[in-house]
């Protein structure tokens, strides 16, 4: 054995868990998705928001701002969820198909690191796209609310007093760019994160991208409807036998209650969400990410490649 090899053998002590390796995988995943030109979706998003602006003719400002918010949040949620599910489904099965996975796992990389790295990469992509979308959304909202204020002032024939302008501003802006909207943005991210974790789990046992996408979408939709279904079966939360409770719990774990994340629906209608509820939403997301990562790992660690 030559000297160099021996040096490596001595110095290159293997680390059981390495954040640097995870980060390398995450960044690679992110770069890969970025270079797949996913950010072209921003063009569609911009078109949607600007298109929504054109629909406003003949509506009150309250409706106009609401439609703008609805379309923006709807599109954000749609894109984020698509990225979460399709992005995740594209990555792992493709790595396996192309045998790229072999080259990674034959490096000293534990399988859990690979999974976490992929998940973080997707989350990073989702976060950046949501950031871009919300910046655009907020910018349009800001421009519109000032535009509406100017139109309002111009529409009044007489001299408008400072106090009147102030009250217009107050009533228009309170339906425009408000800090609470950030909670909606965060909730969109949390929901997409859970969807990504679900897709990650599915892709650990699925053999193809298509299968992963379909199964994840099914879970996604059932997750939205599960609360309804449980309500229906158990007459508004009254569960009697232990069996029923177990069944409901099982449904709850397998199908995350995605409806809980639809904070934006309420926000655009002018409702208020408490910080404690928001904090618990974050906690719930963390719970799902952990559970799904662990289960994914259990499946993936034993997977025969």
């Amino acid at each position: 054995m030559d000297q160099q090899a021996q040096d490596i053998a001595i110095s290159g002590k293997h680390r059981v868990f390495s954040l640097l390796r995870i980060w390398a995988i995450s960044r690679n995943t992110f770069t890969q998705l970025v270079r797949m030109k996913v950010f072209y979706f921003m063009l569609i998003f911009s078109a949607l928001i600007i298109g929504a602006n054109l629909l406003f003719l003949s509506f009150t400002f309250e409706q106009e701002l609401k439609i703008l918010k609805d379309v923006s949040f709807g599109a954000m949620s749609l894109f984020a969820s698509i990225f979460a599910i399709v992005g995740t489904a594209l990555l792992i099965p493709k790595d396996l198909e192309d045998r790229t996975l072999y080259t990674i796992l034959t490096k000293p990389v534990p399988r859990i690191e690979y999974l976490i790295g992929k998940l973080l990469g997707i989350l990073l992509l989702i976060a950046v796209s949501i950031l871009l979308m919300s910046l655009l959304f907020f910018a349009v909202l800001y421009i519109r609310q000032h535009g509406i204020l100017a139109e309002k002032i111009a529409s009044i024939p007489r001299q408008v007093s400072e106090a009147d302008i102030e009250s217009f501003r107050e009533s228009i802006f309170s339906r425009g760019l408000q800090p609470e909207l950030l909670l909606g943005v965060v909730a969109v991210f949390l929901k997409a994160a859970v969807a990504a974790a679900v897709a990650l789990f599915v892709s650990t046992f699925a053999s193809s991208t298509l299968f992963t996408i379909i199964v994840s979408l099914v879970i996604y939709f059932i997750g939205h409807a599960q609360a309804l279904a449980l309500d229906f079966y158990f007459a508004k939360g009254e569960m009697h036998s232990a069996g029923q409770r177990f069944f409901a719990g099982l449904i709850g774990v397998v199908f995350p209650n995605f409806q809980l994340f639809n904070v934006a629906d309420g926000l655009t209608a002018g409702e208020v969400i408490s910080t404690s509820l928001m904090a618990r939403l974050v906690g719930l997301t963390a719970f799902y990410l952990t559970i799904y990562s662990l289960v994914s790992w259990l499946v993936f660690a034993k997977k025969e490649l």
Partner: peptide
């Protein structure tokens, strides 16, 4: 043991790598 892969390099049959990366990346 993952550590055993610290001293091995593997080239699979017909490998595909991330085609969006450059050689040095």
């Amino acid at each position: 043991d993952t550590a055993s892969r610290g001293s091995v390099g593997f080239l699979p049959e017909n490998p595909y790598f991330y085609k969006y990366l450059t050689g040095s990346e």
